[in-house]
Design a protein around this nucleic acid. Structure first.
Length: 99
DNA sequence: TTAGTGACTCCCG
DNA sequence: TCGGGAGCCACTA
C-alpha cells in the first residue's frame, strides 16, 4: 500500500457519493496530480478495499465504464444499485452526474 | 537501477 | 466527429 494509493482511495470515498461518478482524470486532479491519471488507474486496479472503496464510480472521460479488475458486470450492477444508469457500456447522463 | 506495463487523456490531422 | 499516436505516472519484476 503506497501513499499515492491511500490518497486515491481516501479522496474517492470522501468526494464521490453514491449516485455520482468521477473520471480518472478528475480524481487525479483532486489529489493534486492532474497528469497522474494512468497511475490512478493502476491504483484502482490494485484496490484491496473493494467494495468499501467505490472504485466502480471511476469511469473514463467520455463516459465509458473503462475496465474493472473483477467482473465488469459487477461494476454495472453496483452503479445501477446507486441509481446510475448504464447503457451499452456507457454512463447515461454522464455529464449530469459526473463530479 | 531500469525497462515494461496499464482500469487513461489529450492533441492533431 | 473520429481515430491514431504520444505522453503521463506509479508499480513491478
Amino acid at each position: 500500500m503506497t501513499e499515492f494509493q491511500q490518497l486515491c482511495y481516501k479522496t474517492l470515498k470522501e468526494k464521490v457519493p453514491a449516485g455520482k461518478v468521477i473520471t480518472y482524470g478528475g480524481l487525479a486532479k483532486l489529489i493534486n496530480h492532474p497528469n497522474a491519471y494512468r497511475a490512478v488507474g493502476s491504483a484502482m486496479n490494485k484496490n484491496p478495499f473493494a467494495p468499501e472503496v467505490p472504485c466502480h464510480r471511476v469511469v473514463k472521460s467520455n463516459g465509458d465504464l473503462g475496465k474493472f479488475a473483477y467482473d465488469i458486470s459487477l461494476k454495472v450492477k453496483r452503479l445501477e444499485e446507486e441509481s446510475v444508469l448504464v447503457e451499452n457500456g456507457k454512463v447515461v447522463d454522464f455529464k449530469k452526474i459526473c463530479i
